[in-house]
Design a protein around this nucleic acid. Structure first.
Length: 261
DNA sequence: AGTACCACCTGACGGC
DNA sequence: TGCCGTCAGGTGGTAC
């Protein structure tokens, strides 16, 4: 699930709950989710600290502690955070549990364990190490235009390429192309300047709207593709049957009428 | 540089 | 009911 808007909501959730609480102990339920850090190392680094602020870059959440270090969280396809008090309320598939001195817990939940929890010294270094592009909500049109210049391959692959720009996955790249009237398979080099600008504007619009809706599917406008992306469903705009196609091994839905090329 | 394929994981769903 | 293949919104490695 988690793409940029989802992670932004997790950030807001963490800001509203675990921030400024003193940590008591850390329990690792499954160390497969640890990224280049041992259980002991993570426990030692977190113990007795407070999270002071959070930063999101693309699909990554980084929480800075009062020792300057960052806890880094990636959510894979099934990850989320849960703040709760009673031990009985520990969610299923909890992988890392942080207990605070106020008796509350913050659980990193990740059913499929495709996400990662780790440590970083700085946001800049974390981004560099992972070769992440600029955050999709934090770049201007010129940069966007420049980064696509000379790119081969489909526009959907480009939008989903975290090294190019960070934050978009299958769902939102698809949604943005739907609003822009561009087929997911369209080659980047076939798009004119006007279309690129349109895609850029829609990227901002769609991501902002998703955050505004708190990524609750029920709150999305009916004119969005997201609530309709099921086999055989109709385009909310023109009524044509939505098509699906594999683009880079991922299912891409589109409207054959509204997205001609 | 881009893409195909596989791997990492778990669970839901549909067909038989 | 059970077994099996397929699929799921992510990422990384390898081979072409």
């Amino acid at each position: 699930m988690p793409e940029l808007p989802d992670v932004e909501i997790f950030k807001q959730y963490m800001d509203a709950t675990a921030l400024h609480q003193k940590t008591d102990s850390v329990r690792i339920r499954n160390k497969k989710v640890l990224a280049d850090v041992s259980s002991k190392q993570l426990q030692m680094t977190l113990k007795g600290r407070r999270f002071e602020s959070t930063t999101r870059h693309g699909k990554h959440l980084l929480a800075q502690m009062d020792n300057g270090k960052f806890l880094t969280i990636h959510f894979g396809m099934t990850g989320f955070l849960k703040y709760y008090k009673n031990t009985d309320d520990e969610p299923e598939h909890s992988r890392v549990l942080i207990r605070f001195t106020n008796g509350f817990h913050l659980a990193y939940v990740c059913q499929r364990m495709l996400g990662k929890v780790g440590l970083a010294d700085s946001v800049r270094k974390f981004i560099e190490d992972r070769r992440l592009g600029p955050d999709a909500l934090n770049l201007d049109m010129e940069t966007f235009h420049r980064m696509l210049a000379g790119k081969r391959g489909s526009i959907k692959s480009a939008l989903m390429n975290q090294n190019l720009l960070a934050g978009m996955g299958n769902i939102y790249s698809e949604e943005i192309l739907y609003h822009s009237g561009v087929r997911p398979t369209a080659q980047v080099k076939s798009l004119n300047s006007k279309t690129i600008k349109k895609i850029f504007r829609n990227m901002k619009k769609v991501l902002d709207r998703a955050i505004e809706c708190r990524v609750d599917p029920a709150k999305f406008p009916n004119s969005y593709l997201l609530p309709h992306r099921h086999k055989g469903e109709e385009c909310p705009r023109c009524g044509a049957t939505l098509q699906q196609e594999k683009v880079n091994q991922r299912t891409a839905y589109y409207c054959p009428e509204c997205q001609p090329g």
